[in-house]
């Protein structure tokens, strides 16, 4: 066992953006450990990075993703390449197969990591309220998936790598999932990414009948109204207004998070906003880790007061 293998993901339009972050993480780890780093790439997505090797994983049965197909192919590649560390981007697809792959090797995937320091792999617990450092047993192969944004794609060391075709022996009967083509539910009527100001509402709003409280604020600020996932799950606002890993990614001038605790699935969708305002009754809510301005208090008192003050300022 030696070296780092980065398993990249190919999306509908080439490499998934988190793939490059993961390659950057692999390069960093390679420098720290003084070990070689290689990458596995499915399909024909181009990758130009300074690596010791790129494995082009190719097989007719891998043209559409299946958990069974990807697991079998990567199991064979890991046996051949024998890496000490296998890194993945923590995408929905990786969540679907990487735990299965790690199980084949008797290991536990350390999922959604935000950093690695001196052999300790750091990840979040309790939806971001706490962090934890995990220690793999010495001498065992590490499988870890990397949270979006934890490493930066612009830190990627560009360059070239010798390429090798890897064609695993796959039996069609192995692939039990029969995927149909991906689709989008409906054309998105709301493009939140174009908004300068977004007022976003979370569980703190308590019930559907309270939604007008934040609608008023959005109106006063000339903002788009958005929400965290649970609000859309409950049908209180349409799914197309959801911000986060399963919704839209936004980076407005101002993002006002009202009653949103700031679970990671939400933060990844908005932490690029220029100014973040958090209104929350819990001073320990993870949203305050990314907020520029915070008001700790009951949103049902703060938001109406804010609406008045905004109207006053607008004259």
């Amino acid at each position: 066992m030696n070296g780092i293998l980065v398993v990249t993901e190919t999306g509908l339009n080439g490499l998934h953006k988190m793939s490059l972050e993961t390659v950057a993480a692999g390069q960093q780890l390679s420098r720290e450990l003084g070990q070689p780093v290689s990458a596995a790439v499915f399909l024909t997505a181009p990758l130009s990075a300074k690596l010791d090797r790129v494995y082009r994983v190719q097989h007719d049965l891998l043209s559409a993703y299946t958990a069974d197909g990807y697991t079998a192919a990567l199991e064979a590649l890991i046996h051949q390449a024998d890496p000490a560390v296998v890194l993945f981007p923590h995408t929905y697809q990786v969540r679907d197969f990487a735990p299965k792959l790690a199980t084949r090797f008797g290991q536990v995937l350390i999922s959604d990591i935000i950093g690695v320091h001196e052999g300790k792999w750091r990840r979040q617990l309790f939806q971001g309220k706490l962090n934890a450092d995990f220690l793999p047993q010495p001498g065992t192969r590490v499988f870890a998936s990397i949270q979006a944004g934890a490493f930066r794609a612009d830190q990627l060391e560009a360059g070239a790598a010798p390429e090798e075709i890897f064609s695993p022996a796959l039996d069609p009967s192995l692939l039990r999932q029969k995927p149909e083509p991906p689709f989008r539910e409906s054309a998105r009527a709301v493009d939140l990414s174009a908004a300068d100001v977004i007022v976003s509402v979370g569980r703190g709003i308590k019930e559907q009948d309270n939604i007008p409280v934040v609608e008023e604020l959005a109106k006063a600020l000339g903002a788009e109204l958005a929400a965290s996932r649970p609000i859309c799950d409950n049908g209180w606002l349409p799914m197309e207004r959801q911000v986060g890993s399963s919704g839209q990614t936004v980076a407005p001038k101002v993002y006002v998070a009202v009653g949103i605790s700031g679970a990671i699935q939400h933060l990844v969708g908005m932490k690029g906003s220029k100014t973040i305002v958090a209104i929350n009754k819990d001073p320990n809510a993870p949203i305050f880790e990314v907020a520029d301005y915070g008001i700790i208090g009951d949103l049902f008192e703060v938001v109406p007061a804010l609406v008045d003050e905004v109207k006053k300022a607008r004259g």
Binding site: Q107, L130, Q137, P286, E289
Partner: peptide, 12 residues
């Protein structure tokens, strides 16, 4: 195979 070395409040 993986043990918790420690948990702590995240830095801001």
């Amino acid at each position: 195979t993986v043990t918790v070395a420690g948990i702590f409040a995240p830095p801001r």
